[in-house]
């Protein structure tokens, strides 16, 4: 790490930011070394960035399956945990229609809980350690952090419209 420098560029508008990203690409700075922070969710296509990867959907799907199984267990499993089944109102011990309700609710609950869990895991939330950040992004500016070899710092700065400061 010591041979790289973290640089920050802050833009008011999307178009210059997109140009800057393009320039960085031209300078052979990999997408992995660029981190863009914005106050609104800017689609990756606008800045010419690769599609960000996320686990949220998969986790949610997995949660849904777990929830379905929990519902299945609650309705069709628990009544058989006793030696004698408890009968009520002449109904089946494990009736299907109410079971559908239980399974639906549990599926949705677990799906949503795990989607949220996915957000937390994927974004490493909560995380209170200081990380590269500028408060201006929440005023609508777009910040581009990028990592470049120490030697190319000047060159890049010359190309960039503006350099505020680097972190670390």
């Amino acid at each position: 790490m010591s041979d790289t420098t973290l640089l920050l560029a802050v833009f008011e508008e999307i178009d210059p930011a997109a140009n800057a990203v393009e320039k960085l690409h031209e300078m052979n700075i990999a997408d992995d070394d660029i981190n863009i922070i914005s106050g609104v969710p800017i689609a990756h296509k606008m800045l010419g960035r690769p599609h960000p990867w996320t686990n949220v959907s998969k986790l949610s799907l997995g949660g849904a399956f777990v929830g379905f199984c929990v519902g299945l267990f609650l309705n069709f499993g628990t009544p058989y945990l006793y030696a004698d089944t408890v009968s009520v109102g002449g109904q089946y011990v494990t009736p299907v229609p109410p079971g559908l309700i239980i399974m639906f609710e549990m599926t949705m609950l677990f799906a949503m809980l795990s989607a949220f869990l996915g957000v937390l895991l994927d974004s490493s939330f909560p995380n209170y350690r200081p990380l590269e950040y500028v408060a201006e992004v929440s005023d609508g500016k777009i910040a581009i952090f990028f990592r470049c070899p120490n030697g190319e710092k000047q060159k890049i700065c010359g190309c960039a419209y503006k350099t505020r400061r680097n972190i670390r």
Binding site: F76, P79, Y80, T85, G90, Q91, Y92, V93, P95, V96
Partner: peptide
């Protein structure tokens, strides 16, 4: 535990004697 399939059902209630 063996699950008695007669206890699982979607149709109306079982008529008790």
């Amino acid at each position: 535990m063996k699950i008695d399939l007669n206890l699982v059902g979607a149709k109306g209630a079982i008529a008790e004697a």
